[in-house]
């Protein structure tokens, strides 16, 4: 159980990206965060693993207070939370295998890992993770030799290496075409069915309907909706996305 309580974030330049946001995520949910560009989705996801420190509020994961964890505790929390990014965030010049192995850094012997030495069982684990996302044969390619969809699958394999309880996915398909979007989200769906909690921000409402067990909508940093995707009627949609978006979006409804 993840509990987000009265979280606010004000950036040093004064931008208030989150305003008193609270909601819970039960284990095993596929929670989708929606909202306009700039509404605070990325900020919210990054507060959960404290890539960004919230200015106010508390985040609890089970009984652990994430917000007050010290550096060592935080690394321990983080290795249980996988993260997938819109821009994949792979090290482009490194091999796919190294990228996947790096997901294991939080568990690895720090000194051996610095020398690039990995035990065989970890290499096997990485190859298995790659096989799960269907690109085992790419293990020794350079990451930037892969297509966007393949790179995102490497991103998922990297997250899998953490044996995560939670996966945070920040617009994981926004850089991919619609067909690939489904294939990537299906991988997340399978993992979710296996018990991993997924918190994912998305743009397209049809995807939201297809995958979300629950939806949180942000607008200007405030939570304006929480419920199932079905509950988002025209009025709610207008409230979340504003007047202008209405006509464009209505078609995809």
């Amino acid at each position: 159980m993840l509990r987000i309580q009265h979280v606010s974030k004000t950036y040093p330049n004064g931008t208030q990206a989150l305003k008193d946001v609270s909601f819970d995520v039960a284990d095993g949910e596929f929670m989708v965060v929606i909202g306009l560009s700039g509404s605070g989705k990325s900020t919210l996801l990054r507060c959960i693993n404290r890539l960004i420190d919230p200015s106010e509020g508390k985040i609890y994961w089970n009984d652990t207070d994430v917000t007050s964890a010290n550096a060592a505790e935080l690394r321990n929390i983080r290795r249980n939370i996988g993260m997938v990014f819109q821009q994949f965030n792979l090290v482009k010049r490194s091999s796919v295998l190294t990228n996947v192995l790096s997901g294991r850094l939080g568990y690895a012997n720090p000194w051996l890992s610095l020398l690039g030495i990995w035990p065989q069982e970890e290499k096997d684990r990485a190859l298995k993770a790659l096989a799960r996302v269907g690109i085992a044969e790419k293990a020794f390619s350079r990451a930037d030799a892969l297509s966007g969809g393949q790179q995102q699958r490497v991103g998922i394999a990297r997250a899998l290496m953490q044996e995560p309880k939670i996966i945070l996915a920040d617009e994981p398909v926004a850089s991919l075409d619609p067909v690939l979007s489904h294939s990537i989200l299906q991988y997340l769906e399978v993992l979710n069915k296996e018990g991993i909690t997924v918190i994912c921000s998305l743009h397209f409402l049809d995807l939201v309907h297809r995958y979300a067990t629950r939806v949180v909508a942000l607008k200007d940093g405030m939570k304006v909706f929480e419920g199932s995707a079905k509950e988002i009627d025209r009025a709610k949609f207008k409230e979340i996305y504003g007047e202008e978006a209405q006509e464009v979006r209505a078609a995809s409804f």
């Binding site: 890539l51 690394r75 994949f88 965030n89 792979l90 090290v91 482009k92 010049r93 850094l105 939080g106």
Partner: peptide, 30 residues
């Protein structure tokens, strides 16, 4: 360097030195 991979490594629970070796070094070697 591209900060994205560093963010990704930080999110895995890597420490600072690991982030440098795995995220910075490959980007700067050439």
């Amino acid at each position: 360097i591209d900060p994205g991979p560093l963010e990704a490594l930080q999110a895995t629970g890597a420490n600072r030195l690991q982030m440098v070796i795995y995220g910075v070094v490959p980007q700067i070697v050439p």
